[in-house]
């Protein structure tokens, strides 16, 4: 496993692994000869709302996949609450508290809303085959508690009435809510939201902003948003990281980002024209 070269501990600079809920250290990802993400370091402090943005093709999704464990980085390491999770498989990361939603909603369509949430409790439940078949008291209690917890979560995201509905029959907005409820069922420390406002109108986006902070405060976790739409992110994030063509070009508060020359260029300047060419 590759790693950053050890550096002398400088006074006043705490080790980012210790102070952040999640820390990605010098991540590089190559697909064959293509460098999709180039030496990007990234941190999610505890109880924060941060975002990762960038124009199409910036490497956001690839980077995101490294965080969730779908890809193994070519170089670099990922730490969750001080533990190295670079090679931990996705399901274990989920159990450790890294929950996500999907850009293109990926619910279990033919399961009810309640079952969807309960699937995500898998790693917290213990009962095995025998106790399930015999329906031992422990298993029954566990199931009951899980079901209650699932309903609570559905209430929390505002679709308490939909518990018995098949996920596929929910409205688009409710499906997004269900995805969040499902992710919260993992009792995450970090919630990764992949383009959560896609397809929302401005009012819904506004509500969404409030919702993000409510989740953060009530569930005591950090939120990472991935977006390509700047306007949404500016309102909701505490800090923003900008990727462009695999490189980290800026990191800072929304105000900083707004005034950053490179970000403006990435969004409006050269990349814009090239995309224009491609579309033509």
């Amino acid at each position: 496993m590759t790693q950053a070269p050890p550096r002398p501990e400088t006074a006043g600079t705490p080790d980012p692994v210790d102070v952040n809920a999640l820390y990605a250290d010098h991540i590089t990802i190559r697909f064959g000869g293509l460098v999709a993400v180039n030496d990007v370091s990234f941190a999610i402090p505890p109880r924060s709302v941060v975002s990762l943005i960038g124009p199409n093709g910036a490497g956001k999704t690839t980077f995101f996949n490294v965080l969730t464990g779908l890809y193994e980085p070519t170089e670099g390491a990922v730490f969750l609450e001080g533990r190295d999770i670079t090679v931990v498989p996705p399901h274990r990361r989920a159990a450790m508290g890294l929950a996500r939603t999907f850009q293109n909603i990926r619910l279990f369509n033919l399961m009810t809303a309640e079952e969807n949430v309960m699937v995500a409790m898998h790693s917290h439940l213990r009962s095995g085959i025998m106790s399930t078949v015999l329906r031992l008291p422990g298993q029954r209690r566990e199931e009951r508690e899980a079901r209650d917890a699932a309903r609570e979560l559905l209430e929390f995201v505002g679709i308490g009435k939909a518990e018995g509905e098949l996920a596929r029959n929910l409205s688009y907005g409710d499906q997004r809510r269900l995805e969040v409820a499902r992710a919260l069922a993992l009792r995450p420390k970090i919630l990764l939201l992949d383009e959560p406002t896609a397809g929302m109108n401005p009012q819904e986006s506004e509500l969404f902003n409030q919702f993000v902070y409510r989740v953060r405060d009530e569930k005591d976790l950090s939120v990472l948003l991935i977006e390509h739409d700047m306007s949404v992110i500016m309102k909701v994030s505490e800090r923003i990281t900008v990727l462009d063509r695999g490189n980290l070009i800026a990191e800072g508060t929304p105000d900083d980002i707004r005034n950053n020359q490179q970000v403006i260029e990435a969004y409006l300047g050269k990349t814009g024209t090239r995309e224009g060419r491609r579309r033509a």
């Binding site: 080790d15 980012p16 952040n20 820390y23 190295d84 800072g252």
Partner: peptide, 19 residues
């Protein structure tokens, strides 16, 4: 400092036996 601490770490990466 209140900027994000993303300065790099001394942690050694785990050596993986699996691969």
């Amino acid at each position: 400092m209140t900027a994000l601490a993303i300065g790099g770490t001394n942690r050694k990466a785990k050596i993986r036996l699996g691969p």
